[in-house]
Structures are given as C-alpha cells and as structure tokens.
C-alpha cells in the first residue's frame, strides 16, 4: 500500500476551510453555552421555584439527550415546527451549545455551591455585603475551581461540532469526505483530518490536566 500524501497536500485549502468551519462553530458554541449556562446556573441556584423548575428541566433535558438527536431535530423538525428556515450552521450551533449549556450550568452552580458555607458567614461577620462577598471571596475561588471542567466542556463541544457534518455543515470531517470521494483516498484523508483534530485538541486537554494537577496542589 502506498500512502498518497500528494492528494492531501494539494487539497490543503479544503482542509483549511474545514478547520475554519470547525473553529468557527466551536467558538460560537463555547460563547453561547457559557452565557446560557451562566443564566441557567444562576436560575438553578435561585430560591424561587419559578426560576428553579424551568432551569432544572432545561438542564435535565439537554444533558440527557444525545447531541446528534438534537442537531437532527433542529435541522429537520424545528423548521416544520416554527416555519423558520435554519442553516446547517445554526442547527449545529443550537444542538451543540444547548447541550453544552446544560453542562456549563451545572459547573457554575456546583462551583459556587461547593465553597464552604462558613466563608459566607465569615464575610458577613466582617461586615461585607452580598456583592463584596461574591466578588472578593466566593467568585475568585469558584472560578479557579471551575476552570478545568469548563475547559473540558469546551473541548467536548469542539469535538461535538464534527457531528454537524451529517447535515452537510462544512467542517473538518466534511473536508475529509469531500477529498476522499474525489480522490478515492479514504485512508489519507480521514487520517489527515484525525491528525488535525489531535493537533487542535490535545494541547487543550493537556492544559486542563496541568490545571487540575496544580489546583490539587494549591488547595
């Protein structure tokens, strides 16, 4: 068997466009899921049932449904439901980021709840108000602890964008399919794309692990 690198190198613009597609969707998903997750996470933390029940329902529903099913639903069922036409990009973003938002909400909630109650009491004893306690004591510690799981979630979301290739969104896996169907070189094209994914994602997972290790030392 001869490896045909030439057909991959000659098609670098296709792979590049796929990488741009993957990163574009990845960043939009990360931004959306963190903002939605922050809102939902605070709502889950709220004392009022009016906020807590819908937020809990949101988290449970999106955490317990496969991303692929959500993407397909948004692409094929959502337009029938609402009459709004949706592009593969937005169907993918909705599927991946709502799922991610449910996880982020739990990370935010857990991060704040895991700070020992005694610290709140200590701050109150020192005469700090809610905002001062949150800003000076709780959040700095919570953010430090939330960083590794949030990075982990970001990685999972970038990986999940590859599923959007099934509705023909132009990302890395789609590039591989284009190249392999034109040049009949599935080995080279799928291997090349897998390598691009590893090059993008491995540094992120490695950083997460470093952060976790450092955190467990400093705590």
């Amino acid at each position: 068997m001869i490896w045909d690198y030439q057909s991959i190198l000659a098609n670098w613009p296709v792979i590049w466009r796929g990488l741009v597609g993957t990163m574009h969707m990845g960043f939009v998903c990360i931004a959306m899921s963190m903002s939605i997750g922050l809102v939902v996470g605070s709502a889950r933390y709220s004392r009022s049932l009016v906020f807590r029940i819908p937020a809990t329902a949101f988290v449970e529903f999106f955490r317990n449904t496969p991303v692929l099913v959500q993407i397909i639903w948004f692409f094929f069922a959502f337009p029938v439901f609402t009459g709004i036409k949706i592009t593969p990009f937005w169907a993918g973003v909705l599927g991946v980021s709502l799922n991610g938002a449910a996880y982020c909400a739990e990370i935010f909630r857990g991060g704040i709840q895991n700070i020992a109650r005694g610290q709140w009491e200590a701050c109150r004893a020192l005469g700090m108000n809610y905002r001062q306690t949150m800003g000076r004591v709780i959040l700095p510690q919570a953010i430090k602890r939330m960083l590794p799981p949030l990075t982990n979630r970001a990685v999972e979301m970038i990986k999940a964008t590859a599923i959007a290739s099934i509705i023909a969104y132009y990302e890395l896996l789609h590039s591989a399919r284009i190249i392999s169907s034109n040049f009949f070189n599935p080995i080279e094209s799928y291997t090349a794309v897998a390598i691009v994914f590893i090059v993008v994602i491995w540094p992120l997972t490695y950083t997460t692990r470093l952060m976790e290790k450092r955190l467990s030392v400093s705590d």
């Binding site: 990986k159 999940a160 964008t161 590859a162 599923i163 290739s165 890395l172 896996l173 591989a176 399919r177 392999s180 599935p186 080995i187 799928y190 291997t191 794309v193 897998a194 994914f197 590893i198 994602i201 491995w202 997972t205």
Partner: peptide, 15 residues
C-alpha cells in the same frame, strides 16, 4: 480522547 468519536468511527469504517 483528542479525536471526536465520529471521526474515529469514519476512520475505522472507511480507512
């Protein structure tokens, strides 16, 4: 851990 499972699946299935 660094490759999306769908990419691995395509690799195993096609390559």
């Amino acid at each position: 851990r660094s490759t999306p499972p769908i990419v691995t699946l395509f690799w195993v299935f096609f390559a």
